[in-house]
Structure formats: C-alpha cells, structure tokens
Design a protein around this nucleic acid. Sequence first.
DNA 1: CTTAGTCAAGGGGTA
DNA 2: TACCCCTTGACTAAG
Length: 300
Amino acid sequence: MRIGYPCMNTGIGCTSARTFRLKSWSEERFLSTVAENLACLSRILAYNAAHRLLFFRVTSDLVPFASHPVNTLDWPEIFTEEFAGIGALVRENRMRISMHPDQFTLINSPDEGVRERSVAELTYHAAVLDAMGLDTTAKVQVHVGGVYGDREAAMARFVERYRTLPDRIRRRLVVENDDRLYTARDCLSLHRACGVPVVFDTLHHECNPSGEDVAGALAACAPTWSHHADGLPMVDYSSQAPDARRGRHTPTLDPAHFAAFLAASRPHDFDLMLEVKDKEQSALRARALATDDPRVKRNL
DNA sequence: CTTAGTCAAGGGGTA
DNA sequence: TACCCCTTGACTAAG
C-alpha cells in the first residue's frame, strides 16, 4: 500500500495548477505557466519522495488549455526534458501517479461534440503520463458519465466507446464509482462488459451504495486490475464532512474512521489516495497511523 | 492590498 | 424553460 494525496501540497509554497483566463491566452503566457507548473511538480514529488508519500495525483491544470483549439503548440516536445526528469524521479523512487480529468470528460455522452472534446482531453492526460515515460500502472480515472434518461443505453455507450478508444488512452483508463449516478456495482458490470479496471471510492460508496460493505466492494474491485499491467488497485478514501452537504470531504483526516477503514480493508492490498482538504498533512498522519500495517511497512 | 465575482468544457434536479 | 447546484483553486477586475 502506497499512500498519497491529490494535486497540491499545502506546505512547500508553489502550485502546479497555475492557469489563466482564455482571454489572456498567449504563447508566452502558456509557456511560462507550464514551465512554472512543471518546476513545482518536481518540487512536490521530491518532497513526496523524501517523506515516503509514494502516490500522487497530478492536477489536470498542469498544462492549461492543453486540449483547447487555441493551443497549437507541441508542448510534449517543447518540455521533453522536464517531463522526462519528472518521470525519472517517479521511477527512481517507485512512486505511482494518477490523473483525474474534470467532470466535462464524458465518453458516454450522446453528443458527438462532447465526446470528441472528451477524447481530446483524455489524449492530453495520456500524453502527460507518456511524456514522463511511465508504464501503464499510471492511470487516468474517470466517472461513467451521465444517464441521459436511459441508464442501460448510457452504460452500453460507455462500453462501446471504451472499446474504440485509441490504445494510448484505453491502456490507462480506469472507472470510478460516483456519488449520485453510478455505483460500484454498476462499474463492476462495465468491467465485465469491456474489461475496464474499477477504482473504488469509499465516500461515494457511502453516498451511493450498492449493497456491499467495504471489504466486499474491495474484494470485487481488486480482480478488475491485472496485476502485471495495471498494478495494484487504486482506492480513493475520504470521509463525510460533519454538518456539510452529503458528499463533501472532511477537512482533515478522521483517525478513528481511518483506522476502521484499514481494519475493514484487510487483507486487500491497494494504493490509497486520501481525498482530504489538508492534503499531505493528512497523508503523513495516515501513514504514521498505518506504520504497523504490513501493507504499508513494505514501502517505508 | 483585499475581496468578490468569475472561469473552456456537462449534466441533473427543481420550480 | 429557466435557473440552481456540483467542486475548486486561481485569476482578475474592482474597490
């Protein structure tokens, strides 16, 4: 079990998610922003390596407007060295990377334009991981998408479109249960139909359950990952913020809830993404809480 | 300097 | 049909 956190570090004083308004677009602005973002990502990963936080989600804002028509620059080529350096850092420290495109990425949309933009966005995400030289254990996770008034048809469209995605995308794509529309069980049925691995999200499963307890859901999702090509299963963990709208993440790690999760999840092994607002601070506390867990101990 | 409104992109739910 | 919500940090113009 590697423990990680998403997208940003609260302590080191830089962000890899700098962006700008489309109105402010210029090649100079783009190039300087990407350069800053990549430099910051390097710093974050160096911090993570030093603190043995070996799982990290790279922000989708790393390359602003990467899939937008306004951008005709060959950014993977321009930043070849920077991406390669980051990839080397990841590999040398046996770290793992994931990405999670925004809600606009909907491969099951009936709208041709939405689908095309989604494929372009997925191509961007795959291109980042490719430029880093990472193997197919580095994943791009998406939700199933909309229902469009007909769940069966919407799920069938996901399957059909997954099958025809370029291999560059498909080999990295994994699907996650969401908090309203598609449960873990729905995702498992997609896996049976097309082979897509399933990321289990604990909070979404609480909000939008499909009958299994945590252990049962993990047992069902784990075999959707081919150990060789896909690596360990990925699990997103968070708990419900008290007195907040359903689905809102807690601001910081709840130690008792986390301990209960660790106990319930045994003996399954997976890489764990802590979706908590204070980011690396909670990841560090989680790792400390779990140091006696043999799954974590192996990676210290 | 601080702050409040806004940002490429979709879809679901309510009135 | 019209409007609100999600989720979120960062940008940007206004004060």
